[in-house]
Design a protein around this nucleic acid. Structure first.
Length: 310
DNA sequence: CCAACAGATCGTCGTCCAAC
DNA sequence: GTTGGACGACGATCTGTTGG
């Protein structure tokens, strides 16, 4: 490192270096900026905001990362480590400041793909056949399991989206493309009941899943999230999450993951499971497909030479 | 009228996942 | 394998309802 650059870096505090980095627009997405800011801010708070950047040793960066996120999941560790790495490399290469590096021993961790938190098929079936579950929750959970869709996608559905005859509905993916989710007879029986109004008629428009209370004036949602028949607001993700947690101790995502896992256990081909879950990347879908001992034993039989009887 | 309650929402941080 | 944008999780908090 040239002496001039080292001198320039010597006057920069951690806080100033962080501010300079974060003030430089990197992406248009505010979430990314927030994530970077959060990670870097916690590190410099630990090390001392007013310390000169040039005086911080590599090992201190490593120790700070370990203290803050050493016990978090690998994905979290890697993400925050990447933010700090990006910041320090920017200081070194773009600004030519004397700055520490993320030490080699604070290496990236493997994001193991084995924990899917899928629950047993019997657990799902027992939950869905319970009699103390209100119609709305029962329909939502069954629909989530049968469609293997993300909870936000199902909660975003409107009555006019539902193709009840063909047991399917379009969901909009990120690129704006239309993808279809499919359900089975269980959901098919429940949906008409859910859409029925007290006077016997049927809801034709607006959110499929509604909150139980009228929206409070201070938090009135947009017109598209209000049922034109009842004035109720669309059921939100968070409320739906609390309900499933309360009744069953499960997460909404576990219904989707369990569906994919159960399809895999039934030896449904990976391509089909990907079609169902609408995963673009086989690696993602493969996380949920874990052949059990029985399936492996059965596959082994294929390799055995045929016995011939003479 | 008040306190307890429960549904609904917010704020913030953690995790997922598909493009690269 | 890496990255960063999108999305989920979860405790805290807000708000309307209910029973006394």
């Amino acid at each position: 490192m040239p002496k001039v650059a080292a001198l320039r870096g010597g006057h920069i505090t951690l806080a100033a270096a962080a501010d300079a980095f974060l003030a430089t627009p990197r992406t248009a997405n505010p979430n990314t900026h927030r994530a970077y800011a959060s990670a870097i801010d916690r590190v410099i708070a630990l090390l001392g905001r007013d310390r000169p950047l040039a005086e911080v040793a590599d090992a201190e960066i490593g120790a700070a990362l370990t203290e803050l996120w050493g016990r978090c999941a690998p994905a979290t560790w890697n993400r925050n480590r990447a933010a700090v790495t990006s910041w320090l490399i920017w200081c070194q290469t773009k600004k030519h400041w004397a700055a520490p590096s993320v030490p080699a021993d604070a290496e990236r961790r493997k994001e193991s793909a084995d924990e899917t938190r899928a629950v047993a098929k019997t657990t799902i079936h027992r939950l869905l056949s319970r009699r103390d579950i209100p119609l709305r929750e029962k329909t939502l959970w069954r629909m989530l399991y049968e469609t293997a869709a993300r909870a936000t996608e199902i909660l975003a559905l409107n009555v006019e989206d539902l193709d009840l005859e063909h047991r399917r509905a379009p969901v909009r993916s990120k690129g704006g493309a239309i993808e279809w989710v499919y359900w089975d007879s269980g959901t098919s029986h429940l949906l008409p009941r859910l859409l029925r109004l007290p006077d016997g008629s049927t809801r034709t428009h607006g959110p499929v899943f509604l909150s139980e209370r009228r929206p409070v004036p201070a938090r009135r949602p947009g017109a598209g999230d209000i049922c034109p028949h009842t004035g109720r607001a669309r059921l939100g993700y968070d409320r739906a999450r609390v309900l499933l947690d309360t009744y069953a101790g499960l997460d909404l995502h576990q219904l989707r993951h369990s569906a994919a896992t159960h399809l895999g256990e039934a030896e449904v081909p990976l391509q089909l499971i990907m079609g169902k879950t609408r995963h673009k990347n086989p690696r993602t879908a493969m996380r949920y497909v874990k052949p059990g001992p029985e399936a492996i034993a059965k596959a082994t039989e294929v390799l055995a030479p045929r016995r011939r009887t003479h």
